[in-house]
Design a protein around this nucleic acid. Structure first.
Length: 394
DNA sequence: AGCACCCAAATACCGGATCT
DNA sequence: AGATCCGGTATTTGGGTGCT
C-alpha cells in the first residue's frame, strides 16, 4: 500500500522490525504453539463430542470467519504499537492536510511534524475499502512513545498543564484533543493496553471512507518522561468491533519553538550524514589517520532526532569485535510481570548491539546472551497478553 | 569511588519584528 | 490590532574531567 508518509517509515520499520525480531521471537513461538495447540484441542473435543453441533459453512458464515481472521488484529489486552501496518485488502493513508500552518510545520527531510503547544493541525485519513467488508469504520488516534522499551507506558499529561486546564473533566487527561464534530474520547488514567489508552475515536464518513481529523495538542514532548519524549501520533483504522485493519504513525514533536527545533534537527541530520560519509571515506582510504575525537561526544538521550538515531546506529556499524565482560545479575522483582519486562528490555539492548556489530563472532556471542535471557524469561510463564499487538502479525 | 565543577546541547521564555 | 515569526538569553540537563 502506498502512503505519502510511507517512505519515512520504511527505513524505520526495518530498524524496528530488526530489533523487535529478537524481542518477539520467543513470544511468537510460545503464542503460536500454545494458541494453536489450544485451538486444535478445542476443535478435536468439539468434533468428538456428539452434543456439539458444528455450524454449517454457508456463504454468510464464511464472511464472518473472514472478518475474524487474524488479518484483522484484535488489539484488546495488548500494548499499542507504532509499527505501520495495513491489511492487504484495504489501503489507508494519513497525511497532514498542509505542510505548514499556524503553529505547525511538517519537515519533509525528517518526515516529522513539529507543532507548537496548543496548536491545531488537520490530518486527512483516506482509505480504500472493498464493499465486501463492513461499512462502519473508525480512526483511533493516540500519542505513543517511539521508544520500543517504553511503549507499554501510557503518555500522560503533565501536572503543570493539567493544573492550568479548566476544561471538562472527561478530556482533561487527554494530550490530543479532537475538534471534529463527531468524536469520542476513550481510555482511562494509566490504562496500559491499547483499548485503555487515552485516545480519540472518530468515525469515517459513511459514503466515502475518509475523514479530516482536526487535532489539538496540549502538552509538550518535554512534559513527558525522558524516554517518552520521542513520540508518534498513531492512527489506527478500526472496524466496528474494534479490530485493527491499518496503522499509520506520524512522528511528532510538540514544543514552543517548533520551527527552530525543526531546523536544528535538520542541521543535526545533515551534520551526521556528512560526518558519517567522511568517516566512511577515511575507512575506505588509507587508515593512517585515526578518527580523532572532535570535542566531547555528547548526546542527550531525550534530545535525539528520532528515528535518525536509529539510522545513525545502523549506518555507524562497528567492525571491530566487542570486548565482552560477562556478568551475572541476580535481583528480586516485585512481580513476575515486571521481571519479564526487565528481561525483555535486556533482550532489546543486546539485540541493538547485535545490529551494530559487523563481526560475526561478536554477533554469535551476543546471540548466546539473548538466548540465555530468553530461556530465563520463558521460565517465568507470564501470560502472553503482555506482548505487543504486532506479535500477531507474524 | 564519590563528589564537585565545567561545558555543551537542548529547550523555554521573552520581546521585537513582520505579516495579515 | 492581533497573530505569528524569529532571534537573543536564561535555564535545565547530563556527560566528562579532575580532585579528594
Amino acid at each position: 500500500m502506498s502512503s505519502p508518509l510511507g517512505p519515512v517509515h520504511e527505513d524505520d520499520d526495518i530498524t524496528i522490525a530488526d530489533e523487535d525480531m529478537f524481542v518477539n521471537a520467543s513470544q511468537l513461538s510460545l503464542i503460536n504453539s500454545e494458541v494453536l495447540a489450544n485451538n486444535l484441542l478445542t476443535l478435536v473435543d468439539q468434533v468428538n463430542d456428539d452434543t456439539v453441533i458444528l455450524p454449517a459453512l454457508t456463504q454468510d458464515s464464511l464472511t464472518e470467519i473472514k472478518f475474524s481472521l487474524p488479518s484483522s488484529l484484535n488489539p484488546s489486552g495488548k500494548y499499542p504499537s507504532v509499527e505501520e501496518f495495513c491489511h492487504e485488502e484495504i489501503a489507508c493513508t494519513v497525511v497532514p492536510s498542509s505542510n505548514q500552518g499556524a503553529g505547525f510545520v511538517y519537515s519533509e527531510k525528517l518526515q516529522k511534524l513539529f507543532l507548537k503547544t496548543e496548536s491545531i493541525c488537520s490530518f486527512d485519513v483516506k482509505c480504500e475499502i472493498p464493499n465486501t467488508l463492513p461499512t462502519r469504520w473508525y480512526v483511533r488516534v493516540m500519542l505513543v512513545s517511539l521508544a520500543p522499551e517504553l511503549q507499554h507506558e501510557p503518555i500522560m499529561r503533565c501536572y503543570n498543564h493539567l493544573a492550568k486546564d479548566s476544561g471538562p473533566e472527561f478530556m482533561r487527561n487527554h494530550v490530543v484533543r479532537c475538534k471534529n464534530e463527531l468524536h469520542e474520547y476513550v481510555g482511562h488514567e494509566n490504562g496500559p493496553f491499547y483499548e485503555d489508552r487515552f485516545a480519540v475515536r472518530v468515525p469515517l464518513d459513511l459514503d466515502v471512507p475518509y475523514v479530516k481529523l482536526t487535532l489539538q495538542f496540549v502538552c509538550q514532548n518535554t512534559c513527558f518522561s525522558l524516554g517518552q519524549r520521542r513520540t508518534g501520533l498513531v492512527f489506527t483504522l478500526e472496524s466496528e468491533e474494534g479490530h485493527i485493519w491499518a496503522r499509520r504513525t506520524v512522528p511528532v514533536k510538540i514544543c514552543i519553538n517548533y520551527r527552530r527545533d525543526m531546523l536544528n534537527e535538520e542541521t543535526a541530520l545533515q551534520k551526521s550524514s556528512v560526518n558519517l560519509s567522511s568517516l566512511a571515506s577515511l575507512s575506505q582510504g588509507n587508515n593512517r589517520i585515526k578518527p580523532t575525537k572532535v570535542g566531547r561526544p555528547r548526546k542527550r538521550t531525550y534530545a535525539s532526532v528520532g528515528k535518525y538515531d536509529q539510522k545513525k546506529i545502523r549506518s555507524a556499524s562497528i567492525k571491530t569485535p566487542l570486548s565482552l565482560e560477562p556478568c551475572a545479575v541476580h535481583f528480586e522483582m516485585p512481580s513476575i510481570r515486571m521481571a519479564k519486562r526487565v528481561l525483555d528490555n535486556a533482550i532489546g539492548m543486546i539485540s541493538a548491539q547485535v545490529l551494530r556489530f559487523e563481526d560475526q563472532d561478536t554477533k554469535a556471542k551476543l546471540m548466546e546472551f539473548i538466548n540465555n535471557i530468553r530461556l530465563q524469561r520463558d521460565t517465568l510463564m507470564v501470560n502472553n497478553s503482555q506482548c505487543s499487538v504486532d506479535s500477531e502479525l507474524f
